[in-house]
Design a protein around this nucleic acid. Sequence first.
DNA 1: TGATAATCGAGACGGTACGTCCGGTCTTGAC
DNA 2: GTCAAGACCGGACGTACCGTCTCGATTATCA
Lengths: 205, 205, 205, 205
Amino acid sequence: MTTVLTPTLGTEPARGRPRNQQTHGAILDAARDLLRQEGESRFSFEQVASAAGVSKASIYRRWPTKGALLMELYMEGFSDVVRKDAQSFRSEIKRYLLSTVERLKDPLWRSILCSLMVEGQHDPVTAELLHSKVVGPRRAAGLALLAHAANKRQIPAGLDHELVLDLLFGPLWYRVLFGHAPINNDFVERLLKQVEPVLFAHESS
Amino acid sequence: MTTVLTPTLGTEPARGRPRNQQTHGAILDAARDLLRQEGESRFSFEQVASAAGVSKASIYRRWPTKGALLMELYMEGFSDVVRKDAQSFRSEIKRYLLSTVERLKDPLWRSILCSLMVEGQHDPVTAELLHSKVVGPRRAAGLALLAHAANKRQIPAGLDHELVLDLLFGPLWYRVLFGHAPINNDFVERLLKQVEPVLFAHESS
Amino acid sequence: MTTVLTPTLGTEPARGRPRNQQTHGAILDAARDLLRQEGESRFSFEQVASAAGVSKASIYRRWPTKGALLMELYMEGFSDVVRKDAQSFRSEIKRYLLSTVERLKDPLWRSILCSLMVEGQHDPVTAELLHSKVVGPRRAAGLALLAHAANKRQIPAGLDHELVLDLLFGPLWYRVLFGHAPINNDFVERLLKQVEPVLFAHESS
Amino acid sequence: MTTVLTPTLGTEPARGRPRNQQTHGAILDAARDLLRQEGESRFSFEQVASAAGVSKASIYRRWPTKGALLMELYMEGFSDVVRKDAQSFRSEIKRYLLSTVERLKDPLWRSILCSLMVEGQHDPVTAELLHSKVVGPRRAAGLALLAHAANKRQIPAGLDHELVLDLLFGPLWYRVLFGHAPINNDFVERLLKQVEPVLFAHESS
DNA sequence: TGATAATCGAGACGGTACGTCCGGTCTTGAC
DNA sequence: GTCAAGACCGGACGTACCGTCTCGATTATCA
């Protein structure tokens, strides 16, 4: 179940006795179970180790930080980053938002994502990890998509691309954080509809 | 320095020896200092108590939760919630966003806000507190403002007011969480400019 | 069961919630049981805490060091330090040696004594404790006894008192350490008989 | 620097790739350095291995026990066991005691000896090793010496030889263990002088 | 004038988790 | 069969907080 794109976040063994893949899997499974059942409050290396039947050292060897382990879980089976060669900006971004919303329906995945963000608030290492693995790539893909669209004159020239992405991702995070309103396909639909005028405002003027 | 609007979040004494206001102040001062100097990582009731020269019980007596204490700090000298009787929606919302951005420049305030949000992620009590004291009122005021504007036909009728607020507050939180882009007056300016077409899209069509 | 001569080796509470005597007793009981059943190898604060149903902190609060705890156990019900006002040096020292031999028959006591000595070999704090509580007092009493006897001209004047004590206690420790020969009343008898000529050598000359 | 008398305490290789003598030496050197610099507290196979640039397995292959390794260090360049054919008991025992005292001045050697004794207190294997390699031979030589002297009627017949040795070695260990008094040539001189009457007490009677 | 009641600082209490270290064993690939 | 490297489980280390509690002492209001 380990991701292919990011083979392993823990350092590689290289020489010496190779790492046991079963141990690896047991840790991830235990971590997943803990998060699913107990929520992030009960999530500790201590608990993970004991649940996985593994020594704490075996976890620290792979992931120096709670954030690093969470990131590994987050990355699992992940391949749907925004595609740069998409036909239209709108359809591609919609595809991405819908798939994100889909994943957020799984309490586990939501738990992972939130925990990751929480860790990032007080651990600079996790913050950096979050930026390089999650936020950065998504934004980069989005920017590329926007540049592509701008090149094709599908969207106006003077647009603040950074801000456009903030307008798309920000509301999602906002609702995740405070849960003041539902997150579903309808929300995506409405969000895109609202943001659309932004993309074509200058055109119409 | 205690707030006036929300006298105390902890229950009141009623009978018996009244609570010492100096103790109260010392706790808040110590909490503020700790957050300012050490960041939220070092922030614990234990530390606050020892820094304030106060017993832990005296803190728990007033604030049952880290979240409750943080909320008290957050509330201090707060009176600039959105005014319902504002002239125009745009100017009022701009005033609010600018004042928020201004406050976010203070690392202490930012620290408080983030810690509060973090606590809310795994403590339902804090989550509820956060909703009833922070998110709720702001959104209510915003909705009232939007309703007022809609009444006066300043904005189109079919607008999803909830979503409009998400579009305004979401990007702000998004940048606070990940720090991928600066938060300043220019950001507010651009944000409003971008969202404007949303408000008048139907009008122009 | 706590000794009276050395009330408690851990620091005293003075203010705040007073220490629970049951907790105190439970720790000592658990420690004693562990040493008796498992020997000193299994003896760890972790084990003691869990066996006593007590938190580790409660142990560390009282005894900062394994050596300190062992010392408390060693001191329990201890009142037979050499009496300075003894009739004759020989009878008094014999009484002390015999009672020591008696105690050494108890594997628990022997275990405590050895562990204490072992700790003292690499922990300066325990070494100091050992000196101030065990070795020092015994030697002081012995020296006083010798001085008394010298005063009464029961033993010759030019005697090296320090060395006399080494000759009496050294062989005992030597046999405890290596177990090359039995430690029993007969040993004490023979030891004293052998050392006697030393005490009266000059007299006879 | 490897000893010749006791080639290796670990089992010999027999067939397959022969053991690397450099590895052997590196381990002993590292062990010596660690003991010299850090004292016995920092002395662990883990540390020795890393300091020697050697795998832990390579150490365990040679010495199954910390005690075994310490014994190897202790044995290095050792050839001055008591000689049975000595002229007089007194001069020979004095020679031995003085050479021991000389060695004890070296903190390294003292450290090795103490660690060895400490290990022997809770590891039966090391205890046995200690007896067969250190205590046993010395006592055997001492007993032979005493028997020789008794044969020549240099010492009285009814003497408890075991006890005589305890009187000579015991005080030395006693001072090593607790450091309550200096260990030097003067001490040896006085010790022998004190014990002398023991040896000739019966003679004089 | 007391009783009652809640406060105060101090700190003990059982827990849980932290991140590190060591012990002894096992597993590689290379020699 | 050795070698260096290093993973593996188990377990202890000493520290930090958690939220609750128990003290002796203080300071109010109510009877």
